[in-house]
Design a protein around this nucleic acid. Structure first.
Lengths: 114, 114
DNA sequence: TTTTTATATTAGCATATGCTTATATAATAA
DNA sequence: TTATTATATAAGCATATGCTAATATAAAAA
């Protein structure tokens, strides 16, 4: 039983969102890990404001979820999104970002609330 | 043996190209069929100039190939592109466009040079 | 050759995008 | 309460985008 495919215009708008270096990196990062804004700022070497604006776009589209934990707001990939399957297919073609997260961990800059 | 993955910025630029209704439709159409510009104009109900400009972007990126046949220039999907595999994965999530081509055929508007 | 046909290109314009700077908000700490 | 911290929002600006209208090009037909 095949899932219903989103309309082509919905698909195009998801691709448009991912068609930006910063947002594609963010989505790739949150696919397997929760990250908070300050981690993106560190990893992507961008201003907090700019990162925040990109996150808003992703959140408005429903591609990422946010969850407050103490001081921080953590973002994660939303697997319930109608295009989540396509996004995962795309991410298989994107170089792994885990290395960068591990570096962050080594530098003691990883935020952990568990 | 895994193929080398394009850099994230190259992937993002391909996604940006596909993140437009018109171009995503074009790529979906040429995945399985050669089409000429006037067919796109008919199918997408857009001006010839606009279609031509979208095709140029796709061609400049190497996602489609062009081939002259008599009066017409036919466009087809370039399976040699470094991101061709990803594009095919994406297109599996896009509604089938063949129906529209069949309608064009029925209307006697399909161009055939074989 | 001239004319026609299919497609490409250019210029101009309105809108969208992504950044910076400055400020606001909301939760925590003191 | 006030101060601090993490994040969000708003305004402003330079650049990118996608369209239309007009024109150019290049192959085929007359």
């Amino acid at each position: 039983m095949e899932k219903i495919k989103p309309e082509i215009k919905d698909t195009a708008s998801v691709l448009k969102l991912l068609g930006d270096n910063t947002r594609l990196s963010i989505v790739s990062l949150v696919q397997n890990h929760e990250c908070c804004v300050c981690e993106f700022v560190e990893l992507l070497d961008m201003s907090q404001s700019s990162v925040s604006q990109h996150l808003r776009k992703l959140r408005d589209a429903g591609l990422v979820k946010e969850q407050r934990k103490g001081h921080w707001i953590f973002y994660s990939f939303n697997r319930e999104h109608p295009s989540a399957g396509m996004v995962e297919d795309i991410l298989r073609h994107v170089p792994d970002q885990n290395e960068k997260l591990q570096q962050l961990e080594r530098d003691g800059l990883r935020i952990n609330c568990d």
